[in-house]
Structure formats: structure tokens, C-alpha cells
């Protein structure tokens, strides 16, 4: 098994772990973490499987960089919404 394929296998493991976390965990923060793990898994498969013959391939590497930025943006928005929610709970929870 080539190194690239080993990365891809690890990616599959991370992907299903993240997928399971998204479905099974209730806490919102855990879900956001799970989404990041799932995404990292997909990125690893993209890079690893594309380079399973051992030749470095810049195309999936660039795609993963794009994907990382996209998932950073999505994570930031999710965290901001979660904080907004916590904010509202605190702001109105104690008032009559």
C-alpha cells in the first residue's frame, strides 16, 4: 500500500467519525468539531488518493487549500451563530 493510499484510508476513518459525530452528538459545539473532522477526512482522501502513485499532484493540493478556507468560513459562521444563540439565552432567560 502506497503512502498516498494510507493517507486516503486515514481520511476515510476521519470522514466516517465526523459523519457519526454530526448525527449522534447533540451539543452544537461538538457538531461543529465533527463537521471539521469530516471535512479533514474528505481533504485527506482528495490529496491521498490523487497521489497514490507517489507523484505529487498540485491540483488536489490547491483544491484542499480552497476547501480549508471554505470550511474555516463555514466554521466561523457556525460559531458566530452559536454565540448569538447563547447571547440571546443569557439576555432574555432571566427576565420576566
Amino acid at each position: 500500500m502506497s503512502t498516498g493510499l494510507l493517507y486516503a484510508m486515514t481520511g476515510v476513518l476521519l470522514f466516517v467519525l465526523g459523519m457519526g459525530g454530526l448525527f449522534l452528538r447533540r451539543a452544537l459545539m461538538t457538531k461543529v468539531l465533527a463537521f471539521n473532522i469530516q471535512g479533514s477526512g474528505a481533504f485527506l482522501v482528495l490529496v491521498g488518493l490523487g497521489q497514490r502513485s507517489g507523484i505529487p499532484d498540485p491540483v488536489p493540493q490547491a483544491m484542499v487549500l480552497t476547501g480549508i478556507v471554505v470550511s474555516v468560513a463555514a466554521t466561523a459562521l457556525a460559531l458566530a451563530l452559536i454565540r448569538r444563540l447563547a447571547d440571546n439565552d443569557m439576555g432574555t432567560g432571566d427576565e420576566p
Partner: peptide
């Protein structure tokens, strides 16, 4: 090569991705 793919061959992906990042701030 990665920079070449990112900003030239597939620069369009990067263009849209910058918009995605700005959108996260807008959504917030």
C-alpha cells in the same frame, strides 16, 4: 505549482472562495 493552480489555472475557485470568506462575516 500549487500557487499556479490556486491563482492561475484554477484561479476562479479562489475568486469564489474569497467571496465565501467575506460572506461568513456578512452572515455574522
Amino acid at each position: 505549482p500549487v500557487t499556479a493552480v490556486l491563482l492561475n489555472f484554477r484561479g476562479y475557485d479562489t475568486l469564489l472562495e474569497v467571496a465565501v470568506l467575506l460572506l461568513a462575516l456578512l452572515g455574522m
